[in-house]
């Protein structure tokens, strides 16, 4: 599987995503600088990492979306390539309209860095195939603007097609107000596109993918992707 990690000015989880793809997963991985374009056939997985692209000035992700690399990302998405946006990467995907909705500042206006529990709502995606539906996993968050918003119509459509992939829940899997760290609509932590090939999530799976970090719950996001891509190749899809 060929992986790309896009480097926007202000990205800071680019090295972590690179490490997860190359060292943890053992797959060939390249950085793509935001001023570069690439072809859809170059990569199987394109990761939009976390950070503060363009300082998050104006709105998180708003400026990054206009970079040359994003033009290629949009084309790759149309060509069915897998796109994984984590944290700021999710915000960029929203601004680029590859995913529906928008992001606001956290309800309490504070940056939150701690573990949260997530419920896997949909395991029928290229990103979550190795999880069980309803499984509860622990993944760290680190963001100041993760308060997902979508209007009622959008929400209904999103839910109807199984677009909600992860929700914030408590230790026992209850999706409650207290378990919602940022005020997201219906505790949404991650969503997938209609075609199923674009995932955006606020929590950081790359930060919990190794034993030494004390938690490997995030690793299966990357392993699911690998399994899906290799399966696709094997089946000639």
């Amino acid at each position: 599987m060929k992986c790309a990690v896009i480097m926007f000015p202000g990205s800071n989880c680019d090295v972590d995503c690179y490490h997860a793809c190359r060292d943890v997963l053992g797959q060939p991985t390249e950085y793509v600088f935001h001023k570069e374009k690439f072809s859809s056939v170059d990569f199987d997985l394109i990761v939009l990492p976390g950070g503060f692209s363009y300082g998050d000035y104006l709105r998180a992700g708003a400026i990054a979306r206009f970079s040359p690399a994003m033009e290629s990302v949009i084309k790759a998405a149309e060509a069915g390539k897998l796109i994984l946006g984590i944290c700021n990467g999710f915000q960029i995907l929203l601004e680029a309209k590859l995913l529906p909705g928008a992001m606001k500042r956290n309800r309490d206006l504070k940056f939150h860095c701690h573990d949260v529990f997530l419920r896997v709502e949909n395991n029928n995606t290229p990103f979550t195939g190795l999880y069980k539906k309803g499984e509860i996993i622990k993944v760290p968050i680190a963001h100041g603007e993760g308060n997902y918003f979508a209007d009622r119509d959008t929400m209904e459509k999103l839910k109807a097609r199984g677009g909600v992939v992860f929700t914030y829940c408590d230790r026992d899997g209850n999706v409650t107000e207290e378990a919602n760290p940022n005020g997201s609509v219906e505790n949404i932590a991650g969503i997938v596109s209609e075609q199923g090939n674009v995932l955006g999530m606020m929590p950081h799976p790359e930060r919990c993918a190794e034993d030494i970090l004390g938690n490997t719950d995030g690793r299966r996001v990357f392993e699911s992707i690998l399994q899906y891509v290799e399966g696709s190749v094997a089946h000639g899809r």
Binding site: N12, C13, V15, D16, H19, A20, D23, G50, K110, F111, H112, C113, H114, P140, A142, H204, E206, R207, E210, I212, L213, G214
Partner: peptide, 26 residues
């Protein structure tokens, strides 16, 4: 310290809250 990002770079193997923080060197 929960307002500080203390897990970015994925090297923090003993996070804030203990006597000292420990970072791995990849």
């Amino acid at each position: 310290y929960q307002q500080y990002d203390h897990t970015v770079r994925t090297d923090t193997v003993v996070p804030p809250g203990s006597d000292a923080a420990v970072l791995r060197i990849k």
